[in-house]
């Protein structure tokens, strides 16, 4: 464990807590893409399958449980909670996220560390996580006004993978040049997708105006 990875995990955890706070405090999920939340739930289930088979550390196991249960709780709220589900922008959240699932799966069949069920699921979860934010970014561009908590949620979510890239650079130089090209490339794509959001978020912060993404 190094500082970059710990910072990345905490930023990731924080993004989930911010979203849970927004939904719980405002009893509203307006501006939040349910499709992105469903994709994240698939990402965590596919990646943390080894939760019960491989014990790495208490921290690792606890965080896996937290990410799986929180993403499931958010999806449940957006689908079943009587008050919250009414505020879901169904007709704005139109990204065909099934395409992302299919493309990630095909990619995982071709590019993986080992052609085993677990490794294909792991690679699938890495590729899917890289593009899972797309429905949310499209929704932000459509729903002009981005409330602060949703904006902060996306900001922390983008920052977490950027910390992981620093973590991979650190591990590359300290632990021997192990090839981690799958998360490397997917992580770079993932962070790049946030680039324009970071840019407009920074402008809105600098000019102290509401965050608005150009359509």
């Amino acid at each position: 464990m190094n500082a970059f990875r710990f910072l990345g995990d905490m930023t990731h955890l924080f993004s989930v807590l911010v979203l849970l706070l927004k939904i719980y405090a405002t009893k509203s999920c307006s501006g939040v893409s349910r499709k992105t939340q469903e994709l994240y739930m698939v990402v965590f289930v596919a990646r943390y399958m080894d939760l019960f088979t491989d014990y790495i550390s208490l921290y690792n196991s606890v965080m896996k449980v937290v990410f799986i249960t929180s993403s499931a709780a958010i999806v449940w709220c957006m689908r079943r909670h009587p008050q919250v589900r009414r505020t879901y922008d169904r007709d704005q959240d139109t990204f065909r996220h099934v395409v992302l699932v299919a493309a990630s799966f095909v990619l995982a069949l071709i590019f993986n560390e080992r052609f085993t069920f677990r490794e294909i699921c792991w690679a699938f979860s890495i590729y899917l996580e890289a593009v899972a934010i797309l429905p949310q970014l499209v929704l932000l561009q459509r729903s002009r006004n981005v409330d602060n908590l949703t904006g902060q949620y996306v900001l922390f979510l983008g920052a977490y993978r950027a910390f992981y890239i620093l973590n991979w650079i650190y591990r590359y130089f300290t632990e021997g040049h192990t090839s981690r090209w799958i998360p490397w490339i997917a992580g770079l794509v993932q962070t790049a997708l946030y680039a324009d959001f970071f840019y407009y978020y920074f402008l809105s912060w600098k000019n102290n105006v509401k965050l608005e993404l150009p359509a």
Partner: peptide, 10 residues
């Protein structure tokens, strides 16, 4: 190398 790749990151 062990048969399964160990993924120690989240």
């Amino acid at each position: 190398r062990s048969d399964s790749v160990e993924h120690d990151e989240l």
